[in-house]
């Protein structure tokens, strides 16, 4: 320690800060990666259960080592580079898909004090990061120089841009109630038991947010960007090995991110549902797990939407609902019932 302190001289404090921040980043990303790995296993187990199958059960007890085996398999596979593809962009695609999915976690609070960057405009930052994520899909689809990949990219771009508007409006409702863009303050605004959580006064916005979140992450029943029966595998049809796995990591990390956001903004984050139980990060994890289970449940039970139905739902149903409810919330806040919306 002394040696390093002398080596860096007056910059020692800065170096310490950088190293400490890097350690904190690893402390978030590592559990996230493990969570992603076991979310894939949970998905296969849950869908297996719903379809009266067993699911993976060969590798380790109850298939617990299955994600590791899958990861190793993908790691050792060859990454095929299509001859007519745009080489640089072909590799930038997966990177741009996964980078925003991880970067957004920087402002997520796990506890009243446990947060990497306590940013005032945290909600805006997350909105910006999730809107950047679409570039991975578009660039991958275009650089592959394949019809199916290109169609998948176009579908995904149109879908994400459409649903982002509805999603942004739902967040407007939340920040009207919380009077803050800081995620920690939004959670603390819901203190005092589950009847204070924002999902009750903002119920239509909560429903719109969660369905839009499913659409934003390209999950079934909104997975037309992949649409196996129509366009093979959509934007990642030309990818193999680890490059393909990176898209999957990004998809699952995004699922966890939007579930985490829904838990923080509408379900009280780490606050306990009843006042006599202590607040804890376990509550947050339980809420996120429940929302993730809904994702898997949707996938197992809903048929894929037709493309024009997706566009209609986004533009003609969700956006009017959110606009009306924002006006309702704004009007109610001027009446004697304003306390219901805080």
């Amino acid at each position: 320690m002394q040696f390093f302190a002398e080596l860096f001289g007056s910059y020692w404090a800065d170096v310490q800060l950088v190293v400490w921040t890097l350690i904190k980043i690893v402390a978030i990303v590592l559990p996230l990666m493990i969570g992603v790995a076991y979310l894939t296993l949970a998905e296969r187990k849950v869908i297996g259960f719903m379809q009266v199958r067993i699911g993976p059960n060969r590798v380790g007890y109850f298939g617990l080592l299955q994600p590791l085996a899958d990861g190793l398999k993908l790691l050792f596979k060859e990454i095929i580079l299509p001859t007519a593809s745009n080489k640089a962009l072909f590799f930038i695609g997966p990177v741009l898909a996964i980078a925003p999915a991880f970067a957004a976690w920087a402002v997520i609070p796990f506890d009243a004090t446990l947060v990497l960057a306590n940013v005032d405009a945290g909600l805006l930052y997350i909105l910006a990061m999730t809107s950047v994520a679409v570039y991975g899909v578009i660039i991958a689809g275009w650089a592959s120089n394949s019809k199916y990949a290109f169609l998948g990219a176009l579908r995904s771009a149109a879908q994400i841009v459409s649903y982002e508007i509805a999603m942004g409006f739902t967040l407007v409702g939340v920040l009207m109630c919380a009077n803050s863009l800081n995620l920690g303050n939004i959670v603390m605004g819901q203190e005092g038991g589950f009847w204070h959580w924002y999902f009750l006064p903002l119920f239509p916005l909560f429903v719109v947010y969660f369905i839009s979140a499913v659409a934003e992450t390209n999950r079934a029943p909104f997975d037309v960007a992949e649409g196996e029966s129509e366009i093979v595998a959509g934007f990642h049809v030309e990818y193999s090995g680890m490059a393909f796995a990176v898209f999957f990591l990004a998809e699952y990390a995004n699922m966890m991110l939007v579930s985490m956001l829904a838990a923080l903004m509408f379900l009280g984050g780490w606050l306990s549902p009843v006042p006599f139980l202590p607040d804890s990060i376990l509550w947050l994890l339980a809420k996120v797990a429940f929302l993730l289970f809904l994702f898997l449940w949707f996938r197992a039970t809903f048929p894929r939407y037709r493309y024009d139905q997706i566009m209609r739902l986004g533009w003609k149903v969700f956006i009017p609902i959110t606009l009306v409810w924002i006006v309702v919330v704004g009007a109610m806040m001027q009446t004697q019932w304003a306390y219901l919306f805080h």
Binding site: A128, I138, W142
Partner: peptide, 17 residues
């Protein structure tokens, strides 16, 4: 953040499209 949200996240996506 507004620059990224509006121009990068929405305008340029449609432009690329």
């Amino acid at each position: 953040i507004a620059l990224i949200l509006v121009y990068v996240g929405a305008v340029m996506v449609l432009f690329l499209f």
